[in-house]
Design a protein around this nucleic acid. Sequence first.
RNA 1: GCUCGGAUGGUGGAAUCGGUAGACACGAGGGACUUAAAAUCCCUUGGCCAUUACGGCUGUGUGGGUUCAAGUCCCACUCCGAGUACCA
Length: 923
Amino acid sequence: MDYNFQEIEKNWQQYWRDHHTYRASIDTTRQKYYVLDMFPYPSGAGLHVGHPLGYIASDIYSRYKRLNGFNVLHPMGYDAYGLPAEQYAIQTGQHPEVTTVKNIARYREQLDKIGFCFDWEREVRTCDPKYYKWTQWVFLKMFNSYYDTALDKARPISDLVDRFSAHGTEGCNAYGSEDLNFSAEQWNAMSKAERDDVLMNYRIAYRGNTMVNWCPKLGTVLANDEVSEGVSVRGGYPVEQKLMSQWCLRVSAYAPRLLRDLDTINWTESIKETQRNWIGRSEGAEMLFPLVGKEEKLLIFTTRADTIFGVTFMVLAPESDYVNLVVTPEQREAVDAYLDEVKHKTERERLIEKKVSGVFSGSYAVNPVSGKEIPIYISDYVLAGYGTGAIMAVPAHDSRDYAFARHFNLPIIPLIEGADVSEESFDAKEGVMTNSSNERLQLNGLQVKEAIAKTKEYIAEACIGRVKVNYRLRDAIFSRQRYWGEPFPIYYDENNRPQALDESELPLQLPEVDAFLPTEDGEPPLGRAKNWVAANGRPLELCTMPGFAGSSAYYLRYMDPHNDSALVGKEADEYWRQVDLYVGGTEHATGHLIYSRFWNKFLYDYGVVCEPEPFKKLINQGMIQGRSNFVYRIKDTNTFVSHGLKKQYDVTPIHVDVNIVKNDVLDLEKFKQWRPEFADAEFVLEDGKYICGWAIEKKSKSMYNVVNPDDIVERYGADTLRLYEMFLGPVEASKPWDTNGIDGVNRFLKRLWGLFFKGDEMQLVDEQPTAEALKSIHKLIKKVTGDIEQFSYNTSVAAFMICVNELSAMKCRSRAVYHDLVVLLAPFAPHIAEELWHSLGETTTVCDAQWPKWNDEYLKEDTVKYAVSFNGKPRYNIEVAAGTDKADIEQLALNHEGAARWLDGKTPRKIIVVPGKLVNIVV
RNA sequence: GCUCGGAUGGUGGAAUCGGUAGACACGAGGGACUUAAAAUCCCUUGGCCAUUACGGCUGUGUGGGUUCAAGUCCCACUCCGAGUACCA
């Protein structure tokens, strides 16, 4: 009986299904371990070889933990809402749900073939009303909450209402979009609509007028993390800035906690750093600049308070509220023209042009320290959304201000000794201050850092500003003008103010529409739904939630997926608590991984969950890149020349399907059949073979470098695929998918099989293992145990190969040894492990076995190697019996046949004999 | 520009604390078995020079440094990748 992987894999997959082998349930007598993969978006293309990389890695860890006695939760589900299904629906008229369900079925089929230990009874789908009921529920809770900066947590909005009616905003610690000030009397005198407007300033899920990334092509707004370099991440369409009323989540309120708690989680430094940059904490000062001839003052934010004496002008963002305040009638026309120009530039154009532009407002401000009058400009290099949307410009020490000053011929005053600002600004925060003293403030002679501190003190004392910490993190824009997403549990009252549905009305199900396009009046697709009204007859919200809504808390739902009365029950939450190991790609660093942390913290504030962070440890699997193959056609012919000979001809490289190439050798027959125009192709071969060229490129259909895991499973089996994906290199490294070498792994499994069976005959016997065999297997136990803990699976696979080769060479037939080997292999290649386990006469499944422990006694070396150096020069190595003492080793080193060659009869000044640790012997 | 990674044979990659660099695998070359092929097994395989030798030299992107000893630590640089971008 040969190693028949097809039969073995089919049978065991069936067995696991029939016996619910991977069902997880709460068991307080055992320690839990929660392993999670980022759930996939079920795209029409099906699973590709990049997907399973992370899934296999986490599957190995899950199985390993289980063999070590942990109660493992390892679920899987689908991030089922998304733009591609909807785009497809627009094109074909097919309901996105239909394609989604179809794609999910295909994903499931593919996943099943790889032999994962997922508990499918806990599957979630974000588009399932039973699931999105809880997405809507959390949204309602956010709508009904505000953030209390004193308690540093979310609180019910009703508390704030009570507070306002008793004290107004006096001593109020609510985090809001704007600083509002009113008394209790004023509050009580407000109409319902006015109060609603005020509360909207504080709600955690709020509707606000913000500049959004509007993608005309997709017909929707996008979050910051969905836009990269001025185009949409999905589709690559241009994105422009637009002021719109949108649902937002007040993520910015959680910025300090999101930053601080990064120190408590076990993620890679690089991804934590990415989040730190995204959150972007910056410590500075806000300062008030009086306006010439006006009561009002300009509030600016700066991190360089020390450069106050170098301020030669001010700049406002085009969208700043200050603009109308400062524009003089003479400048009105010029300013309007500029604002119009800015408005029509897309984000992308702004990024590409990088041209200095701006306009003088006509007004002047007064430097509050020097008393000098300085002009106020308007320019799009100042962003409305950061700080106060207004800056003090210090051209000598800021490159952007410098460029602006040069363009408009504004004065540049250097403030740091020795700084040469004739060509460029001096941006470094170092040096000694100069030109920075008057009767109010003396900074000359101070270091920059001291000067910043002293200026901050001064502005506080002089009441011209305050110390302020700013965050770059913006509130998340939460509306999408699309169909295929969660409906908002929101209706609009007679004042057109949004109101929450009652919890009992959830889930609010997605209605049917006749087309998935915007309506004729430009309303989102839900505008087409008939009877899209709340129970009270009022119209419901027409936008839907974005993709990250459903993915922000899915890890919680897995803990208790069928609970109809809570997102997650107390018992389940307190047992499973948080994800112990989360595996997924780095592309979610500033999206999903921030939103989930925010979402979790919000729920933590209300005690819905008991852990402040959702993902304790995070492993980022690398991207699988494509590896394309090329054939070289001689120009104007149908003749193809092999890679090694192509220099002799004038050739055009053409992508060739990697699936008809093996180890870079082209299958000529398949090539001829591949496309009609190649049917009568001719070839110039080298050594009788056609060798293809190759390149690392993105995976794409047009480059014919997409490899489907099904084909690999079909040809080599799931166990080979699993081992090979791990053997390819470290899980965390990006690497091209390259099937060269998969044979090696397959051969290993065949060799292993051959150790158990010769023909149909079982080869193993109940005999005492030799010391040699014990050493080999215990070396493996130690190596694999250590490797799995460090996710170093590629070296584990190598260790398996070595061990199998050793056992084979020593003709070891002892069952006891193979018993351990099979258990060790079970996480990596579960099907063959089950089969071999069974053949050893075991009646349980290998999943319920015990992970073996190694015994150091068996691992002792009888000899120890030493490196010897004389007089500081490394010379040679000697090997001595273990336990030899220092003096003897030294003598042996001297007596070594090599010693004479180096010593030339002389006595060495210094001998160093080194085993693992450094031993110095001076003679 | 800034931040974070990385650079080791023909290829993917090993090297836990600084201790025989190149594990393991692919590919390549040679051999065995076979009528032949496939499959399988064995040997060689960083480079250079030797090959009477179980031999010598060199070698981890570049240039310095620390150390008895550096792929590993320190300084400077080059190149590549990823993220981010007018954040004051």
